[in-house]
Each structure stands twice: as C-alpha cells, then as structure tokens.
Amino acid sequence: MPSTESYKFFNHSTCEFYPCHDMSAADLNCLFCFCPLYRLGDACGGNFAYIDGANGERVKDCSACTLPHRRENYDYIMGRLAE
C-alpha cells in the first residue's frame, strides 16, 4: 500500500479548458476529466440535468457537476466502477 494518496489527485493547470468548473482551481481534480460515471445515467450520483439536444433527444448535461473533480470522491468513483 502506498504511503501517500497522491495518486488520487491530478491537476492539469496548463489545459486549455482549465478551470472547467466553478470551483477552486487549487482543488480541481483533473484525474477523471471525462467522468467514468456518465454511462450510469440517472444512477451516477452527480449533479446533472437533462436538456433537449439539437435533434430533440434528451442529453445528459453534467456541466454543473463537480463530483469527479473533488479530491474526496476518488474512493466513491472507484467503488462505483467496481460494481
């Protein structure tokens, strides 16, 4: 077991989209930039909404969600992926 947990956090401050969410840039975890829980739909546990897409289909909008970008949610995400 590692003596630190630095593997749970990565900040990519040179990304052209940084910061991508309305939260403290110093706390923005980029490790799960593309949320691995998106595919879970309504059961992801994040703060999302459905919007109407250009073709009239419902599209999941996660722009207000910071769940995968918070350092403390690493274990939650890994647990959900293991299910």
Rank of each mutant, 00 (worst) to 15 (best):
F34L: 14
Y18G: 06
R58G: 01
Y50Q: 08
K60M: 11
Y38Q: 14
S13V: 04
L40M: 13
H12Y: 05
L31N: 04
L28M: 11
L31T: 01
D22W: 02
C44H: 03
C33S: 06
S24R: 13
F34W: 07
F34S: 14
G46Q: 03
R58K: 11
C35A: 07
E16W: 06
S24D: 15
D22Y: 02
G45S: 12
D42G: 05
F34V: 15
M23T: 14
D27W: 04
P36H: 07
L31P: 05
H12W: 08
C30N: 02
C35F: 03
N29I: 09
P36G: 14
I51W: 00
P19T: 12
L37I: 00
N29V: 09
P19L: 14
L31W: 03
A26L: 11
Y38F: 15
P19Q: 13
C20H: 15
S24E: 15
G46T: 02
Y18K: 06
G41F: 10
D22F: 05
N29Q: 08
A43I: 03
R39S: 11
H21Y: 09
C30F: 06
F17S: 13
H12C: 05
G46V: 04
D52I: 06
M23A: 09
R58L: 12
A54S: 10
D52N: 08
S13Y: 11
M23K: 08
K60T: 03
F34C: 10
L28A: 09
C44S: 04
C35W: 01
